[in-house]
Design a protein around this nucleic acid. Structure first.
Length: 264
DNA sequence: ATGGTAGCGCTGCTA
């Protein structure tokens, strides 16, 4: 089975690109982030025509997450059920049971500037996520928490760590927030399945300055799996081709899809 | 050249 996470940077602007990618790659489950649409404008019929059920959680303009599945879609839960924090009211978390797998599509806040209120909110969001897992999830079952974490777990997960001095995505506090989620009982599947830290593929490249062609990227889109998912993993890869420009299609997202293949 | 690019939605903000 094929599970995918992809920050599409507006589903409305890229409906045809996403539809085309799904029809070509035939995934079982796709988690989207940054759909930037409301539930009313979410194009569910596009996916239905391809044989997928889907759920979406979004208010418009910013954020927005979806889970798209052709192996069943049950027990859909939008957002946080155990947090009163302001940041957790944004549309950044969506959960559904797809077949045997408890799937969570997550879009972690960017943080903007280290030390800003947005940075602190990012850390609060991660703490609230851990609480949701503790209260609602079962680490002994197949569970996949995937999405855009806006955190590069290792120094080698950015193209040049020296360029990120003082920036978000690489600070110790962000990484400790991620670590607390992993320590609950999840594994960074890319890190577990590739040889060394330095071999992990980037998932995002800035639109500006030809970053993609220089491979000036980051690994910030992560697949975190429970032990059951890790043990059934066959491979994980990033489809860099989806980040390339195409003549007939709109501009690509600045993120590429991350694909996880597991045994049934 | 003190930026660069893309989306949203209309002016500047967010990423």
């Amino acid at each position: 089975m094929k599970f995918v996470t992809w920050n599409v940077n507006s589903l409305r602007a890229r409906t045809e690109r996403v539809r085309h990618w799904i029809s070509e790659n035939n995934p079982d489950v796709v988690c989207l982030q940054e759909t930037k649409c409301s539930d009313e404008s979410y194009p569910a019929e596009i996916f239905r025509e391809l044989g997928y059920e889907s759920a979406h959680y979004g208010f418009g303009q910013w954020n927005g997450v979806a889970v798209i599945s052709k192996i069943g879609l049950e027990s859909v839960e939008s957002g946080f059920l155990n947090s009163d924090e302001e940041i957790t009211k944004e549309a950044r978390l969506l959960r559904a049971k797809c077949g045997k797998v408890d799937v969570w599509s997550a879009y972690i806040p960017n943080g903007r500037i280290v030390g800003s209120e947005h940075y602190e909110a990012k850390l609060i969001w991660l703490k609230a996520l851990l609480r949701e897992l503790e209260l609602r999830a079962d680490k002994t079952e197949p569970l996949l928490l995937c999405g855009d974490f806006n955190i590069a777990p290792y120094d080698t997960d950015v193209f040049d760590i020296k360029m990120f001095a003082g920036s978000t995505h690489v600070t110790e506090r962000e990484r400790l927030g991620l670590k607390s989620v992993l320590d609950w009982g999840l594994f960074d599947i890319a890190a577990e399945t590739h040889g060394t830290e330095a071999d992990l593929p980037f998932t995002w490249w800035d639109y500006r300055g030809g970053s993609f062609h220089k491979n000036f990227g980051m690994r910030i889109d992560l697949m975190l799996g429970s032990k059951a998912v890790l043990d059934s993993t066959e491979r994980l890869y990033v489809d860099r081709d989806a980040r390339k420009k195409g003549k007939e299609l709109s501009a690509p997202s600045d993120h590429a899809p991350v694909v996880l293949e597991i045994r049934d």
